[in-house]
Amino acid sequence: MAKIIVVTSGKGGVGKTTSSAAIGTGIALKGHKTVIIDFDVGLRNLDLIMGCERRVVYDFVNVINKEATLSQALIKDKRTKDLFILPASQTRDKDALTIEGVQEVLEELAKEFEYIICDSPAGIEKGAQMALYFADAAIVVTNPEVSSVRDSDRILGILQSKSKRAEDGKAPIEEHLLLTRYHPGRVALGEMLSVSDVEDILAIPLLGVIPESEAVLKASNQGTPVILDTASEAGLAYMDAVDRLMGEERPLRFLEVQKKGFIKRLLGG
């Protein structure tokens, strides 16, 4: 039985798609057959981050409308074995998604894949609710800043009340907190919420802390999931998060302010 994981946040721009791409890739790297679905119909981004935008022919909405088969729409990742992408439609809107249609696609994917990652759109409206409705687990992506934390809290409430698991009275969705764009220096200055501040407010288990890193923007623009950049702190932190998601113990790292050495300062690094 496939595990459906929604990557959600409420607020936009916190790193949902970056995290979906990184975590999906990370799980596939561990040898699990994984598909990442872009639920952001109308604002298709996942294919860009994954660097497969030129290979999109059919999309999620085409499959729902039976204009294409799943195998026609699924894009096999060129770098990572066992990884597939189901892109969103750019020309339609979120109303093109129906519960029945999404369910049918997920059921068919579940026959073939071990992990289904649903990259949620921002907001708490139909698109976001559709992405989380069938989820078994949720990764709540949060930036260490008050409005992002508030929106994450809101989406946690929706996960508890409006998901299929909640409606069927089954075990609640597994909740994981992923803190992204964390800047230890600014936390030390009191300009940013600390890990413990966010944990205290949201009260869900911490999956990982991804430090703010130039590697993320670079990876996005190159169309490579940042997790493949093993020289970057962000890439390593994502790999740690994937390990924890798979049930392994990993200590948190990159939470301390790094003292810049003389050479580093000289080079302006």
Binding site: I124, R150, D151, D153, R154, L156, G157, I158, Q160, S161, P172, A203
Partner: peptide, 8 residues
């Protein structure tokens, strides 16, 4: 027993 989240 569960937390009451924002908006609830």
């Amino acid at each position: 027993t569960k937390p009451i989240r924002s908006g609830q």
